[in-house]
């Protein structure tokens, strides 16, 4: 009897947690090509960020102007009851991430322009965002995306 009495509030709490979930479901067509169209190199100094924000693809294309366009798709993986509950307690739902693109010229030197600025984006659990940037000129071939958790 006592055990049943203990189980009831636990079940209620669990139900409450499920009810509090505010995640995003997505549907997409099955990609016909490999998701990333370039090879990328990642330097991870924050493993929490790496695990919470999953990089899905890194793509580059040439715009009509001849300028390169970079797009990085990332999904907030902080779904599930415990992640949701913890995010709620720590005030990290939605998850806020800061990002900054830096473009490099043909010599590999960073090109500083008004297009290069730290920005924040709020990402709901399960949501996929696309970090996108256009190269400041047609001579830029490479890019670097900085990512960090925002305070």
């Amino acid at each position: 009897m006592n055990r049943k009495l203990l189980l009831a509030p636990a079940a209620g709490l669990l139900l409450c947690c499920f009810g509090c979930q505010d995640t995003v479901n997505t549907v997409e067509n099955e990609p016909q090509e490999p998701v990333s169209n370039i090879r990328d190199v990642r330097v991870v100094t924050d493993k929490f960020l790496r695990d919470r924000l999953i990089i899905r693809s890194v793509r580059m294309a040439t715009a009509a102007s001849g300028n390169q366009v970079a797009e990085v798709a990332a999904t907030n993986a902080r779904t599930g009851v415990f992640s949701q509950a913890w995010s709620g307690i720590t005030g990290e739902n939605p998850y806020t991430v800061a990002y900054k693109f830096v473009w490099m010229d043909e010599a590999g030197m960073a090109v500083e322009t008004n297009l290069s600025a730290w920005r924040t984006v709020q990402i709901k659990p399960g949501e996929t965002v696309f970090f996108k940037s256009v190269a400041p000129n047609a001579r830029c071939r490479d890019f670097l995306l900085n990512l960090k958790e925002s305070d």
């Binding site: 715009a63 009509a64 102007s65 300028n67 366009v69 322009t113 008004n114 297009l115 600025a117 920005r119 996108k132 940037s133 256009v134 190269a135 400041p136």
Partner: peptide, 14 residues
């Protein structure tokens, strides 16, 4: 800074 970056990106890729 935000509007410059967004408009600049849109302009360069138009």
């Amino acid at each position: 800074v935000v509007i410059t970056q967004d408009a600049g990106n849109a302009l360069l890729a138009s």
